[in-house]
Design a protein around this nucleic acid. Structure first.
Length: 259
DNA sequence: ATGACTCGACTATCGAGA
């Protein structure tokens, strides 16, 4: 089984590129972030045409998360937020979508950006990750063999080498953000691409020739719970998806799972 | 070339992204 995650930066603007990716890779499940549309606006027909069904969760033109999955899969226990997921300005935003595929619980996550170190959005970001961590820690406490994959755009660069110039950034590299990211490791989750693809970015800004100059950030991850980690056989970062006509500013990240 | 932002709101500019 192969799972992938991709911040598509508008699924309506990107439907052809995303479906061509599915045709090429035949991943079983693709978790998407920033679909930027409501479910009724999702380009379902394009996905059906290449053999995929879709679960979409979006409230407006911002955020939005979804799954595309092969037609023979039957996801269960669909949730459009995790327990205690924080609100921003009284709104429970479309930033998390959970579904179980076979024996694997997958969360498609679009972690808040933060906007600035002293911005209320940063508190929101940290709280979002703290509460997500508490939730999965409870799940693992109840059943240590739980197969959980936390996938998506975490908007954090855990290591200095995950950005082209650490001095260029204030958010994404700050200690509070890195501390809250590290909690997942302490709970037992593994960033599987550290092993399979130790080098490379997953995001390059559209501005300032960031991609040709390879000035990017590594902020999209697949985190696997202990028993799931044992089943990971391969991983890749699909860097070529940043090339060509009308790319997203992020590229897909893929994990292969045995069984 | 991998090339100088892009998206969706609206319809002219603007918030948001990171």
């Amino acid at each position: 089984m192969e799972i992938a995650t991709w911040n598509v930066n508008s699924v309506r603007a990107r439907a052809q590129r995303v479906t061509q990716f599915l045709e090429r890779t035949q991943v079983d499940v693709l978790a998407m972030q920033e679909i930027k549309c409501k479910p009724e606006q999702f380009p379902y027909a394009d996905f059906e045409a290449v053999g995929y069904e879709v679960i979409a969760h979006g409230l407006n033109q911002w955020n939005g998360v979804a799954f595309a999955y092969k037609k023979d899969l039957a996801p269960t226990d669909i949730e459009t937020s995790f327990p205690q997921q924080p609100h921003f300005k009284d709104s429970l935003e479309a930033r998390a979508l959970g579904a179980t595929f076979g024996d694997i619980r997958i969360w498609s996550l679009y972690v808040p950006h933060g906007r600035g170190l002293d911005d209320p959005h940063m508190d929101y970001k940290l709280e979002f990750l703290e509460r997500l961590g508490s939730h999965v820690a409870e799940e693992l406490e109840e059943d240590p063999s739980s197969q959980i994959a936390l996938v998506g755009d975490f908007n954090i660069a855990p290591l200095d080498s995950d950005v082209f110039n650490v001095g260029f950034f204030d958010t994404h590299v700050s200690q509070p953000e890195r501390d809250v990211f590290e909690v997942f490791e302490q709970i037992g989750f593994t960033d599987l691409h550290r092993k399979f693809v130790p080098e490379g970015y997953t995001y390059w800004d559209y501005k300032d020739l960031r991609f040709p100059r390879n000035e990017g950030m590594r902020i999209d991850f697949i985190l696997s719970s202990p028993e799931l980690t044992e089943r990971i056989t391969a991983g890749s970062i699909e860097r070529d998806e940043r090339k060509g006509e009308g790319p997203s500013d992020h590229v897909p990240v893929i994990a292969s799972i045995s069984g």
